[in-house]
Design a protein around this nucleic acid. Sequence first.
DNA 1: ATGAAAGCGCTAACAG
DNA 2: CTGTTAGCGCTTTCAT
Lengths: 356, 356
Amino acid sequence: MRVATLILLRRECIVCMANIDDVAKLANVSTATVSRVFNNSPYVSEKARESVLKAAKELGYEPSILARSLAMKKTNTIGLIVPDISNPYYSEVVRGIEDVCNIYKYNIILCNADNSRDKEIQYIDMLKSRWVDGIIFHSDYFSDEIYHIFKDRKIPLVLAGRATSYDIPYVVIDNRKAAYDATKYLISQGHKKIGVIHGDLNGMKETVDSVDRLYGFLDAMKEAGLKVYDELIKESNFKAKGGYMAAKEMLMGNVKPDAIFAFSDIMAMGAINAIFDAGLKCPEDVSVIGFDNLDLAEVTRPALATVAQPMYDIGAVAARMLIKIIDNKKISEKKVILKHRLIIRQSCIKRDAQKI
Amino acid sequence: MRVATLILLRRECIVCMANIDDVAKLANVSTATVSRVFNNSPYVSEKARESVLKAAKELGYEPSILARSLAMKKTNTIGLIVPDISNPYYSEVVRGIEDVCNIYKYNIILCNADNSRDKEIQYIDMLKSRWVDGIIFHSDYFSDEIYHIFKDRKIPLVLAGRATSYDIPYVVIDNRKAAYDATKYLISQGHKKIGVIHGDLNGMKETVDSVDRLYGFLDAMKEAGLKVYDELIKESNFKAKGGYMAAKEMLMGNVKPDAIFAFSDIMAMGAINAIFDAGLKCPEDVSVIGFDNLDLAEVTRPALATVAQPMYDIGAVAARMLIKIIDNKKISEKKVILKHRLIIRQSCIKRDAQKI
DNA sequence: ATGAAAGCGCTAACAG
DNA sequence: CTGTTAGCGCTTTCAT
């Protein structure tokens, strides 16, 4: 009888759910006891526990995380801001973060900033007002402006994929060294006129991935005493079409590249197609190397040589760090630099000296 | 003086934020007035509004969405469950949802079910306990089990990418017709031994995309009086490597296909590479058609013919429907079927009759 | 081991 | 137009 009444009562409510009072009443205990049962407190008699569980089941009760968060001032939620989830690189990072968060019972609010700084800031505000316990921020730049916004917000923060000189933990690869390695490899294969397809350089003012990588490229070229052709350094947008256009321009220019280094696999794939469309062959006429080592790199033809980033790990490590910080645990290292790897595949070929 | 005290007080608090009381005190008004200001109530004097805003700014106050949600029993958040964000198809759907949600000031909790039904159910529970206002569920199947779970949970729900006979709104394309169209096109080009690479068929028991599409394929084959070879119907996993393996098996078998219809562009790309690796040419020896029309389809070589799905719109329409349902507005149509489009590109060629 | 009660930050009658 | 007050559902002392 009582149960029926309770259920009927609840029916009128929009969010049609039993709450802790209902359970307490039905189980003939106090709300405190119900709370204890659902928080696995040891100080509950077996008898009380059972009747609470029974009542909860009967009413279809589940604790409201909302109310709990408010009471505990802890949401068990982290915010994640990425520039563009439709980029497979980020999907993979997200997977790493997700897996770790699942282990530690954290939820994620994923924010797709759409490569817009305004949106990033908007999302930071939103996450703050939702009391997320911390934020993982993945962007290819980290400006003073963003730094100050975060500083004002006072939320635990970990940077993924981007280093900074500010005192903020991050997990990255050594982009400069990675680009250096890739370029050096191309040079070792006899390539001399090497083109680059990079992303936004942000006027070289702030540190962005593409700037690091471009420096790495220049390091290697300089070391080898090779000429760097301005016409072979093209800006693009990390998309396949962008890579295609950039490569096309190069191939139609005065200085023909014998190799192209694209700062993402997707752009590299575009470049390979531009080479085909120009009536040339990859790698016979132009070698191509990418960056990221997406799954796709392995199955394209020619298979794409590339610099492998540990995308999943970047996410996973960032998440581990953030959760430790939230829990006020010591983190052994605030600046984590993960290893990159050069992956050689068919899109690069050794160039004979005489052919040049 | 007063301000300083307040701020100091707050410092001790873990979530170091000013709350509505602080603002009310500093502005010399009641909390109700502060609340009114932040909810744009017209019944506030200009004077009060100003001093509230000033105080809020001084204290860096932002309303807690958490507390607001609890008080209003509305979170302005929707849950989104997808099988695998690393699949570009889903990224694009997510973008559509996001854009609409941004307009209507909804937030999204994105759940990546990792193609696991257990995880899906887990996420449904989580979303429920977070009081999301509604859920968009994108999966390639919708089983009785899942239906009943949702029914018990009583949360507004919209299905994306999957039709159902249950009384649940959905937005989809006509998968059967789409596959029929693609197959018919291949047949019209003179192909006879057509292979198929599909996804999980779930024992043909529940309706999943691949089953619909397979039926569409069979419809067209039957209509044309063509023989369907079991050896040319291969199951795969919607990934490039899977498509590669499936195509390889076909090409090494007794019955050589003259065309392959892959149920996703990614698998189609894998198939094209398998064709190359078998020493054959696409489209000269084997034509390939995909499904989805990802950005990538346009930039691969040969460019990939495919069945275009309006991915972004599937997301956007689903989000619009859900928000209307949440707001108790009439929705004109509960079952939305969006248009697919056949996109012809170089990976399909006309086969001469004599060559077969 | 258990209950009463205060409080988390906000909204929404209600009364003025 | 504004303030008072009673919740929203949960956790957490503090008694018992």
